[in-house]
């Protein structure tokens, strides 16, 4: 789980344009406020599938799937 979180953060960070490089990214930070818009979520979805070698089912996707790091963990775990 801790490994997943670390790897996940590495994948998510480049998609957050308002996040300073030295700034910590907590599990419940609002990613929308950090610059993750709906288009960037698509790029992130593709990066997650590639990074973890998984296929996320459309049925798993909700309006909140990319709201926080915590939600993304759930999404990834459910698809493994």
């Amino acid at each position: 789980m801790a490994d997943t979180l670390e790897k996940l953060e590495g994948i998510v960070r480049p998609h957050l344009k308002f996040l300073k490089p030295e700034e910590a990214l907590g599990p419940d930070r609002d990613l929308g406020e950090l610059g993750l818009d709906s288009m960037a979520s698509i790029d992130l979805l593709l990066a997650l599938e590639e990074g973890f070698g998984i296929a996320i089912d459309d049925e798993q996707l909700t309006e909140n799937s990319f709201a926080t790091l915590e939600e993304i963990v759930k999404l990834v775990e459910a698809s493994r």
């Binding site: 818009d37 709906s38 288009m39 979520s41 698509i42 979805l45 459309d58 996707l61 909700t62 309006e63 799937s65 990319f66």
Partner: peptide, 30 residues
């Protein structure tokens, strides 16, 4: 809504039965 042009776009189009999709290139890129 523009915010719906994200990962769920195909599901939303399917559920609404959309036949014509007006857009800008970034919508089609999605």
């Amino acid at each position: 809504d523009p915010d719906l042009v994200g990962p769920r776009l195909p599901s939303i189009l399917r559920e609404a039965g959309v036949t014509v999709l007006p857009g800008v290139p970034s919508v089609y890129a999605a």
